[in-house]
Design a protein around this nucleic acid. Structure first.
Lengths: 146, 146
DNA sequence: TTATATTCAGACTATTTAGTCTGAATATAA
DNA sequence: TTATATTCAGACTAAATAGTCTGAATATAA
């Protein structure tokens, strides 16, 4: 299978976008997230704890507890989340896996892949969670709608 | 970890490019391939067998046996190999993993991702193995050089 | 015909990723 | 203070991917 981001990372992106919909800054428990997003409960729990340790989220225990963004939604980009979960190796490694491939010894698609990869990176850093969650709320958009 | 192609697929791409360097149409044994490409012997064996079953390679047993391209190198694109090993799901699925994401119900990066993904696809179908192997032979190029 | 070099099939192990379970810690509200 | 709702840690299982091993089949060359 080819993929871009790990499943964990996909879940993380979905969950953080969902959190950003919660305007009033209150905490959202995992139970709410899994209900809306169809993500396995305990698995999501671990991912959220991870994002909390990485400083992207804050958490609160007990009744009325849960998770919230650690900073304004407009300050969190897709790249922050991807980097926290999967890392940014894909910005550095050869598409065809040649170990010695580099600027000096480029593989035969090195240059072309570099510009595609830069396009992906540019998208990830340009999109902030506030903007994304706003778009997702429009009618006809999937996943995170009530 | 984020990645584009599975390790198997990376190995397959490298091996097929290496085969294309073998102009005289003779068969190349796995032993030669693993020596040059530093790919685990038996693992590469399975991958080559797979590509043979898929019709991209032909094989011959015994002394002076090995693998060769089943068709002219210029007729094999990167996409043929990727499709044979990893499949082409990445051309269809949502980057953020929203199950309902589609043209009608797009996620908030759907359109932008679509054009990036199309760029990747275009590269894969436009690059044929003959051309790539030729480029790889130039001095300073990695991996498959003698 | 016999030794040898290879593919090939299939069972096996190892590692990574995905996902589950249990119980402790803690905050809130009744 | 007690019941309850949550995070959190860590051990566990499951599935997918990566990689190894053995031996049979087969083609070549001596």
């Amino acid at each position: 299978m080819s993929l871009i981001f790990s499943r964990q990372c996909e879940y993380a992106l979905q969950a953080v976008i969902y959190l950003a919909l919660n305007k009033n800054g209150s905490h959202v428990p995992i139970k709410d997230l899994t209900r809306k997003l169809k993500i396995p409960y305990h698995f999501l729990g671990k991912i959220m704890q991870d994002l909390t340790r990485k400083g992207l989220l804050v958490s609160e225990k007990g009744p009325r507890g849960g998770f919230a963004l650690a900073m304004p939604a407009c300050d969190i980009t897709l790249f922050h989340i991807v980097d926290a979960i999967d890392g940014a190796d894909f910005t550095r490694t050869c598409v065809m896996g040649f170990p010695e491939c580099s600027g000096k010894k480029p593989c035969s698609v090195h240059g072309q892949w570099a510009s595609l990869r830069d396009g992906i990176y540019a998208m990830l850093v340009s999109k902030n969670i506030e903007e994304l969650s706003r778009t997702m709320q429009k009618p006809g958009y999937p996943g995170v709608l009530p």
